[in-house]
Simulated assay, not measured.
Amino acid sequence: MIIIDGQQLNLEVKNFANLEDLLVKVMEDDVLNGRVITDVYVNDEVFSEIYPHQAEDIEADEIEKVEIKTVSVDKMAGDITRELYKVVNLLLKAGGEVCSLFREANDFEALDMYQDFLQVLRDFMSMITVLRQECGLGDTPRLESALTTISELFSEIMEVQENEDWILLADLIEYELLPHLNDWKQIISEFRDQIKSRKDN
């Protein structure tokens, strides 16, 4: 039995070699047109890949039921843009605190907070990637320029970090990265406008 968003499909699990085969077929069909898979349940248990192509290892004869939950691409995009706005504000606040700690020569606490800051920055960049690839948003010259800038700044930050020049790192974050991140609020607003115009069409 294969169910998508509460609707049973006219497909049988036994027609597939394994779970990956089944999921690929479902994603290729028009069933998911304009939708993104959020959850997969196999025999009423949540399935999440721990390693790439783990779904290949689940043979069809082990499966009685596959339930797939989806959301519309526009809903997903809307949720991500809301999160992005929160993430930018979080980065601006945390970045300022990191800079202060480095300037106070409180290196241990500064480095601890800096690692968290970097992780949030990576998450931010991943969310932008999802918006572009999964949701088809934002391919504009302004976005391309902003992505190039943030990528270059990230590389520069890594280089300064390797040299352990914490004051220069604080300057780079405060005077270059944070003002650039603040500009992303306008880009996020443009993402929202794109989603709204797609819904209106």
Rank of each mutant, 00 (worst) to 15 (best):
Leu131Ser: 02
Leu131Tyr: 02
Leu131Phe: 04
Leu131Ala: 05
Leu131Trp: 01
Arg132Lys: 15
Gln133Thr: 13
Gln133Gly: 12
Glu134Gln: 15
Glu134Arg: 15
Glu134His: 12
Cys135Gly: 03
Gly136Phe: 09
Gly136Ile: 08
Leu137Cys: 09
Leu137Pro: 04
Leu137Tyr: 03
Gly138Trp: 07
Asp139Arg: 14
Thr140Leu: 13
Thr140Met: 09
Thr140Ser: 14
Pro141Trp: 01
Pro141Ile: 01
Pro141Cys: 05
Arg142Val: 14
Arg142Glu: 15
Arg142Thr: 13
Leu143Thr: 09
Leu143Cys: 08
Leu143His: 01
Ser145Trp: 05
Ala146Arg: 13
Leu147Gly: 07
Leu147His: 00
Leu147Ser: 05
Leu147Lys: 10
Thr148His: 09
Thr148Arg: 10
Thr149Leu: 13
Thr149Gly: 07
Ile150Glu: 04
Ile150Lys: 01
Ile150Pro: 02
Ser151Trp: 14
Ser151Pro: 02
Ser151Cys: 10
Glu152Tyr: 03
Glu152Ser: 06
Glu152Ile: 00
Glu152Thr: 05
Glu152Met: 05
Glu152Phe: 02
Leu153Pro: 02
Phe154Thr: 07
Ile157Met: 13
Ile157Asp: 03
Ile157Arg: 04
Met158Thr: 07
Met158Glu: 14
Glu159Ile: 00
Val160Trp: 00
Gln161Trp: 06
Gln161Lys: 08
Glu162Ser: 12
Glu162Thr: 07
Glu162Ala: 15
Asn163Gly: 08
Asn163Glu: 15
Asn163Thr: 08
Glu164Gly: 08
Glu164Asn: 11
Asp165Gln: 09
Asp165Trp: 01
Trp166Arg: 12
Trp166Glu: 08
Ile167Ala: 11
Leu168Gly: 05
Leu168Arg: 06
Leu168Asn: 03
Leu169Trp: 00
Leu169Gly: 01
Leu169Arg: 01
Leu169Met: 09
Leu169His: 01
Ala170Ile: 05
Asp171Ser: 06
Asp171Leu: 03
Leu172Gln: 03
Leu172Lys: 05
Leu172Gly: 00
Ile173Lys: 06
Ile173Tyr: 02
Glu174Ser: 14
Glu174Gly: 09
Tyr175Lys: 07
Tyr175Asp: 06
